[in-house]
Design a protein around this nucleic acid. Structure first.
Length: 250
DNA sequence: AACAAAATCAACCGCAGCCTG
DNA sequence: GCAGGCTGCGGTTGATTTTGT
């Protein structure tokens, strides 16, 4: 099968995201959802690969992302789940609300792996020091003793999920985003949208951040494109302004 | 203070698998 | 059943920050 390039890389920007790009992405996804990551950058006025947009949204911009230090409980869950699931970071992330697979993966490689290795070495050393032949677990096994009581239940519920691979991204999959835009504004997960409302503010006519803020003409394209799920023949009322404090903008 | 090494973390890349026509 | 398109996942890279000398 010939794979088509995911995007035209000659025109794509790479590297760190700017606050302006973040704002564009947030504005677009909160309004329209990620009905098509591949098309999204074009409509949102971003010179980014769709995959890059998706990653940025899922890992840093979507609401309810938990940042900062991991609690002992979280680390224990990660370790125990890694014992059983291996490097299935998305499945592990699914058990840790607010944590992303990328973040967990990083944390594992930078902290937990070393910690386990250290434990393993210590265990081996104390084992060799002990000439009585007393059996001692390796670090790996030692970890098992730390498995939270509910971990089996966690794994159970994970594997019994409707999709074969429950993932952190289930929170906002393309399907559920595209299937119903109301998902975006459900009270449970997206009540934050209300926070965007600025009295008298007009998204379509007012810039996000600065006077030279660029809003592409085809930002409205999803509403005009018959292929778009948002096409209904009329331009909607302006959507809310973005409250930057709700997001992890740099 | 300057430099080097190590640690951290955001982002990219390519593959696998699912979905649709 | 097949081809093509798309998303999601995990591995890896590289820039930046922190720590040590």
């Amino acid at each position: 099968m010939v794979r088509t390039p995911c995007c035209d890389k000659t025109k794509q920007k790479k590297g760190a995201w700017t606050p302006e790009e973040d704002m564009k992405l947030i504005a677009y996804v909160t309004r329209y959802g990620s009905w098509n990551w591949r098309q999204l950058p074009k409509y949102a006025g971003l010179q980014r690969c769709g995959k890059s947009c998706r990653l940025r949204w899922l890992n840093y911009l979507r609401p309810n992302i938990k940042r900062g230090n991991y609690t002992k409980e979280e680390e224990e869950i990660i370790i125990s789940l890694h014992e059983t699931l291996g490097n299935r970071w998305s499945a592990i992330a699914a058990q840790l609300p607010g944590r992303t697979d990328n973040e967990i993966k990083n944390h594992w490689h930078t902290n937990l792996k070393k910690r386990l290795r250290k434990k393993s070495v210590e265990a081996t050393r104390s084992c060799s020091d002990d000439d009585k032949g007393q059996e001692k677990d390796t670090g790996e096994t030692e970890v098992n003793t730390q498995i939270p009581a509910n971990s089996a239940q966690i794994i159970e519920s994970s594997s019994s999920a409707s999709s074969p691979q429950a993932s952190s991204s289930d929170f906002l999959t393309t399907d559920n985003m595209a299937a119903t835009n109301t998902d975006l504004v459900s009270d449970d997960d997206f009540s934050f949208l209300e926070a965007y409302e600025i009295p008298g503010g007009n998204f379509w006519t007012e810039p996000f951040l600065s006077d030279d803020y660029f809003m592409p003409n085809d930002f409205l394209a999803p509403l005009e494109d018959p292929d778009s799920p948002f096409f209904d023949g009329e331009i909607p009322s302006p959507f809310a302004f973005i409250n930057t404090e709700d997001y992890n903008l740099h």
